[in-house]
């Protein structure tokens, strides 16, 4: 198997102030990793470090130069003052393959339309992003992420603002896209059920206690960890 992303003795944090480390992690092609932890545990900091948006305080994050990330941020992060349409926002995902100063080609537009179709958002293309429901926003952001033909799909709390039905639809869509396109997935969530149902590898993180564990579900989600981090008793049947 090929490692797409490797963290070697990485300490994560802000402004050269270490928050948690040293961390070691190898993400192989095709794996589905779920990142779990309490609120404020350092999940998003880890994600930003992996994406290269935040420099590691120490250690090294190794990714292939040609690796393309498809990023699904939390929909609340977008300022609703912007009257951007779904097509415009999905087009932005394609910009990973279009340099600054260049315009989208006909081929790019085909990929954008294909992403809209694949996520069932083609009928929403002329709606403004801010007018969509939580589930529709997540599907549009998923379309944006895959329009750049990524190697790794990175999702930051993709089901945080949607109901259970919408959550199931989004996660089913992520699963289908992953299997169709052979994507590697890295998903941050504080919903234990969602992560354990869909991910095949788990990262459990808590900066307050200095805890970091990455591996298979039985290895990470031990009775002790379920009790410590999620208040679940032994035999909760979560896995």
């Amino acid at each position: 198997m090929t490692n797409l992303i490797e963290l070697e003795d990485v300490t994560i944090g802000y402004e050269n102030k270490g928050m948690l480390g040293p961390l070691n992690l190898a993400i192989e092609k095709g794996q589905f990793w779920g990142v779990l932890g309490p609120n404020g545990s350092g999940k998003s900091t880890l994600l930003k470090t992996v994406l290269g948006l935040l420099p590691a305080v120490s250690g090294s994050v190794k990714t292939s130069d040609s690796i393309v990330f498809g990023y699904v941020p939390q929909s609340e992060k977008f300022d609703p003052i912007f009257p951007v349409s779904v097509r415009e926002i999905v087009s932005m995902g394609r910009y990973v393959r279009v340099r600054a100063g260049k315009n989208l080609s006909a081929s790019d537009m085909e990929h954008i339309t294909g992403s809209l179709e694949k996520t069932g958002t083609l009928h929403l293309k002329d709606r403004t992003f801010r007018s969509l429901s939580g589930g529709e926003k997540q599907r549009a952001l998923l379309a944006r992420a895959i329009s750049g033909e990524p190697d790794v799909l990175v999702l930051d709390e993709p089901t945080a603002s949607i109901d259970i039905k919408g959550e199931a639809q989004i996660m089913e869509l992520v699963g289908n896209i992953r299997s169709d396109d052979g994507l590697t997935v890295l998903m941050v969530s504080h919903f234990l059920n969602t992560v354990t149902r869909y991910a095949d590898r788990i990262i459990l993180i808590d900066k307050d206690t200095g805890y970091f564990k990455a591996g298979g579900k039985p290895e990470v989600l031990t009775d002790h960890n379920l009790s410590t981090f999620f208040g679940l008793g032994a035999g909760s049947g979560i896995i």
């Binding site: 994406l51 990023y71 951007v84 415009e88 910009y95 989208l104």
Partner: peptide, 21 residues
């Protein structure tokens, strides 16, 4: 000339940085 890029960095600076803009 830079309409697409100016709108992109104004709307979603984080993703623009991820895309090495």
């Amino acid at each position: 000339v830079f309409y697409k890029d100016f709108v992109f960095v104004s709307f979603d600076e984080q993703t623009a940085r991820l895309f090495k803009y």
